[in-house]
Design a protein around this nucleic acid. Structure first.
Lengths: 166, 166
DNA sequence: TCGTTGGGTTGCATGAAAGAACCGGAGTGC
DNA sequence: GCACTCCGGTTCTTTCATGCAACCCAACGA
């Protein structure tokens, strides 16, 4: 039985995972952020099998996250570069890294520090906030159906409003 | 050949993916954010196979993202609840959703809108910024080894500093 | 008491990942 | 011109993970 895909789900998280939620995919994107461009760079840096890397790169290209560009004249040399859609994953990567820094490594054990190139100061931590910048947590939030909500999404949200108040 | 795991990698993104980067895992966490607690709730909501759900829940509990709590007196009824470590994944889920809202669905087609419960205003979009709040993109950033960096991480960063300036 | 529901486990069929081998074209040395 | 190497893959085999259906037992519920 083929693995279930998320592309029919009416949910942004599912769609994002469909595009780059496969095993290895976000590490490939991370390497692209670090400057990797060539097949061999990704392969050596990650220690991934070549056939898997090949499939993942194709999937990311298909979803518009990477772009495959001819690099050698007339040749069979290619580069994989982040598109704007791919560069927009910076928030996702940053959120993952900051989560692990705090909850896996612990403060003071971060393997990587990200700074603003000019000011040399560390970047600000990502936070979910109100429009005014007040930090919010799970219980402060309220989910509503948006313009693109399917009937199931609407039903799901309204049934939850009745039954659940966590 | 057993699937490669990321738990030995000296990288926050890899560690985060090790904990919740499996297929289905973040959707389970999403459902927990939406209020799901019981095995059957997750199963019906996601349409996931029961054995896989069982394995994923165990993995998330093992990594301290969910907590398994007795729910029936004396009984074999359990609930799965987000721990603080799990609730901290809110930024990750938000980053994924906002990315898909913009790059998959497109503005004006979001299936879900998240508001502050009190002010009823939409939450602010996550952005990677300087300490002052100035938005930053990939080229504004500079990666440095942190206190928890391994020798390989240090080498990797210094070799990149020499060869690459993207 | 008997049926039903919840919360799983087990077994099987099939797809996906790891690793190694192979391959064709471009460049390099001689 | 010819061997040799590197790059960027593809193909093959083995083993693991996923999906599905069947089964199971403890708690409720009537």
């Amino acid at each position: 039985m083929k693995r279930k895909r998320f592309d029919k789900m009416n949910c942004g998280i599912a769609q994002a995972l469909e595009a780059c939620g496969d095993w290895w995919s976000l590490l490939i994107v991370r390497d692209a952020f670090f400057g990797a461009r060539r097949f061999g760079e990704f392969q050596r840096s990650l220690g991934i099998a070549k056939n898997i890397l090949s499939a993942r790169l194709a999937h990311l290209v298909e979803h518009g996250i990477l772009e495959r560009i001819d690099a050698g004249r007339e040749g069979e040399r290619f580069e994989y570069r982040l598109t704007p859609k791919g560069e927009a994953l910076l928030t996702v990567l940053t959120a993952l890294r900051e989560w692990a820094d705090e909850w896996v490594f612990g403060r003071g054990n971060e393997p990587l520090i990200v700074r603003d190139r000019r000011s040399r100061r560390r970047i600000a931590k990502l936070r979910v906030t109100d429009a005014d910048g007040t930090p919010l947590t799970r219980s402060d939030l309220r989910m509503e159906a948006g313009p693109g909500a399917s009937r199931e999404t609407i039903q799901r949200l309204s049934s939850r409003a009745r039954t659940n108040t966590a």
